[in-house]
Structures are given as C-alpha cells and as structure tokens.
Design a protein around this nucleic acid. Sequence first.
DNA 1: TTCGGTATTGATATATTATAACAGGGGTGT
DNA 2: ACACCCCTGTTATAATATATCAATACCGAA
Lengths: 159, 159
Amino acid sequence: MSAIEFSDHDHAACMRSTMQAAEAQCAARGLRLTPVRRRTLEILLAEHRALGAYDLLARLSEEGLGTQPPVAYRALDFLVKAGLAHKIEALNAYVGCVQPGEDHAPAFLICRGCRSVAEAETKPAQSRLGEAARAAGFRIERSVVEAEGLCPACQESDA
Amino acid sequence: MSAIEFSDHDHAACMRSTMQAAEAQCAARGLRLTPVRRRTLEILLAEHRALGAYDLLARLSEEGLGTQPPVAYRALDFLVKAGLAHKIEALNAYVGCVQPGEDHAPAFLICRGCRSVAEAETKPAQSRLGEAARAAGFRIERSVVEAEGLCPACQESDA
DNA sequence: TTCGGTATTGATATATTATAACAGGGGTGT
DNA sequence: ACACCCCTGTTATAATATATCAATACCGAA
Ligand SMILES: [Zn+2]
Ligand SMILES: [Zn+2]
Ligand SMILES: [Zn+2]
Ligand SMILES: [Zn+2]
C-alpha cells in the first residue's frame, strides 16, 4: 500500500505489466480491447495522472483515432466498467487503474499541484461511514473516497 | 451518528434550528446572509436531498431572485465556503448542511433512488487512506467521502 | 455626512463536461 | 445469405460551470 505512483519506479515496466494484466482480464472475461480502447488505456497509464475526457480526445484525435466526444466517452465508459480505469469525481477526470481486474473499492490521493493520482484500498464496510450506514439501514453499493492535497514533490516546490 | 435524514423527524423544527444556527454562524463570522443566499439555503434545506445548480436556479427564478446561472453558483459558492452547504461530487449537486459551522470533514450516504443525502462524520486521519497518505508523504487538505446506494425507504419500493 | 473601498448583484457571453440518437460496418453463428 | 450483436462515425444537443464587466449596495473612516 505504498503509493508507488508518487515514488520513483520503473514506469516503463509498470505500464507494460499493467497493460498485460488488462489484456488478460479482457481475454478472461470476453471483453474486446479494441484499438481505441487499448490506446485510451495506454494514454491514461502513461502518467499516473488524471486526464479530462477532452484532453484524452485531443490525444486520440492527433493519432487519427476519432475526433468526436462520444469516441472518448465510450472508451472511458468501457474501461471504467471493466475496472481498467477510474473516474475521479472531484476532478471530472479519469485515471488508469494500476491493479486492474481485482474488483476493488479504490480510494485516491489526488495532488492539486500536478494532478498525480495514487490509488489505495478501502474497506468501506469497516469505516465509520460503514457503521453509520448500517445504523441507518442504508445499503451501500458504490463508494467514492478521494483525498485532495499535495504530493511529496509538489510540497517541496510549494515555497 | 444516526442519519436523521432518513428517519421520520420533525423536519419543520429541523429546518428552523438549522437556519438559526446558520444565521448565528454568519453573524459570528461577519458573513452576509443576503436574501438570495438565505433563500438558497432554505431551498436546499427544505428536503434532505441533493439539488442541481440549475434546479435551484429554476426555483430562485420562480421567486424573482435571479434568472442567470451565476446567481445560483454564487449563492452556492458562498454557502459551501461558509460550511452551510456541501457539494456532492458524485452527483454534481448540492445539499444543505445540517450541522453548520463546525468545521467538519463530512461523509455522505446518497440514495440513488430518491437523491436523499445523509451526512456523517469522518476522521480521515484515522482511516486506511490516512495511513496510506502518511506512508506516501502526501498531505491531505480536503477529502471527499461519498457512498451511493439505497436508503431504507427506497429498498422497500425496490421490488 | 461624505467619501472611498469592498462586497454583492445584474447581465452577457462562453467554457467545460457529457449524452442522445441514428446510420453504417464487421464480425459470428445458423 | 441472414439475423444478431457489438462497435464505430457523425451530428446535434444537454447539463454543468466560469469569465468578464458594469451597476449598485453596504460599511467604515474622515
Ligand atoms: Zn508507473
Ligand atoms: Zn504533485
Ligand atoms: Zn430535517
Ligand atoms: Zn431513497
């Protein structure tokens, strides 16, 4: 749980292994990782940052993979539903998942300086919120846990 | 921590006391609860539900309090900054705060059936996410904790 | 009270994020 | 070939949010 996203790491290897895991997931579950979807995932994974749908679209467009918003939103919807990417609600932006497939309830650390995003694990049922939900008879189906702040690198350049 | 929002309660009294607390807060801190802001807060508090900015604007507009988006967004910004309302990031919508003033880090239970919202307390520093943040050297400034699901009432009508 | 700064409102325009709707293409199994 | 389903291309539009500037209201100091 050490937030590899904010640390120096062999990111080329990080991307390769994540893409392989994504492909394995799709193969196992009969999902089609088409060229647009695959490239979208690569773009998202290229940096551990949140990217807006229209920024993504601009990148896809440069590569001739589509020019209209639905292209980007469809690819993102697919990836999010497949658990290969996540939406960051606080930013209306999207980030590639670094542990694809495991059906997890992720929590995010989001740097407001550089938009880097690290993914942690939650156990929502254990949390104070889970207790409150049980007490109220509320049935949790999905949880959004996002913390905004400054990553180590941006704290230093914070003056 | 009993999520009064989903229970039967004397809501007229609930609103009155919340409005009084809000006024007290504003008085104490030199903030101006102008007519639009006050009415906005009343509308948000009228039900324990999330309301979109444009829905709010429609209500304000019926009452002659303004017709253009900035009217609604300014009032909402004021209330959110003052801690009298909260933005629900997962819905891009807004809800009145039932414990105004205390500088709290709220967590929300959001019903996807009726958009009712209950507010609980978090202690983000205690959470698993807080641990991950400390381990990574990340400095949390703001946290978003939202759980979507079904409230007791909507579970019953869920068929 | 008058002045001058600050906060608020009014109004226009525009930016950003997201979806609806429908036609075309390309496989797969019968 | 045919029907079926999924994916893509395209046009249009919806929903959410902000920038900007002028006019006004408020408030404290002179
Ligand atoms: Zn990496
Ligand atoms: Zn950073
Ligand atoms: Zn109430
Ligand atoms: Zn409900």
